[in-house]
Computed example of a mutant assay.
Amino acid sequence: MLKKLHDSGLRAEHCYMAGMASVGLAFTSWLLSKRFERAGIERADRWGIFIGEWAPTFFAIGNGLQMYERK
């Protein structure tokens, strides 16, 4: 799988940037949901957690690609 991702042009740096963007997006979505939705803090927390769960996946794929690129 890593070979296919690498061959398609995806690099470790791209995944790391996506992970950092996910962290920022999680915070932003939590803040905006908390401020503008009437559903309350529970819904804001769910949005933040949902998007925040993407970051570890991007970082893990980035680590795998980085190890692949060192070969």
Rank of each mutant, 00 (worst) to 15 (best):
G48I: 01
E69Q: 13
G62Y: 02
S29H: 03
E37N: 14
I41V: 13
A21T: 07
E42M: 07
F59K: 03
L2D: 05
R70S: 15
F50R: 11
K34Q: 11
R11H: 12
K3Q: 13
F58P: 00
A60N: 06
G64W: 03
L32N: 06
G40H: 01
F59D: 10
W30L: 15
F50H: 04
G40C: 02
I41F: 02
S22W: 02
K3G: 13
G48N: 01
Y16G: 06
G24H: 01
R11T: 14
F58Q: 04
L31M: 14
I41A: 12
M1F: 09
L31Y: 08
C15W: 00
G64R: 06
G9Y: 00
I49L: 13
A60S: 11
F50P: 00
G24F: 10
L31A: 15
K34M: 12
A21F: 12
Y16N: 10
G24K: 01
G52L: 13
I49N: 04
A55F: 06
R43N: 07
E37W: 06
G40A: 03
F58K: 00
F50N: 11
K3Y: 01
A60I: 10
G52P: 08
K71E: 13
F36Q: 05
R11N: 11
I61W: 03
Y68V: 05
R43T: 07
G24E: 10
A18T: 04
S29R: 02
R43G: 02
D45Y: 02
G52C: 11
A26E: 05
G9R: 07
C15H: 02
N63S: 08
A26Q: 04
G64A: 14
I51T: 12
G48A: 03
I49D: 04
G48T: 00
E69F: 04
I49P: 00
Y16V: 10
A60C: 10
E53F: 06
A21Y: 07
E13V: 10
T57W: 12
E37A: 11
Q66T: 00
L31P: 00
E37I: 04
I61E: 13
A26L: 03
K4N: 11
W54Y: 09
K34F: 11
T57E: 09
E37T: 08
L31R: 04
Y68A: 12
E69A: 15
L10C: 11
H6M: 09
A44C: 03
E53H: 08
A44Q: 00
M20S: 08
F58D: 06
A21G: 14
G52T: 09
W30V: 01
L65W: 08
S33Y: 00
L10T: 09
F58S: 05
G9I: 03
S22V: 03
I51W: 05
C15V: 01
G40E: 00
A18V: 07
G62V: 02
Q66K: 14
K71Y: 00
V23K: 08
F36Y: 14
L25A: 15
A39M: 09
G24A: 13
E42R: 05
G9V: 05
Q66F: 09
N63V: 04
R11A: 13
I61P: 03
R35N: 07
G62W: 01
L32S: 10
A39D: 15
L2Q: 06
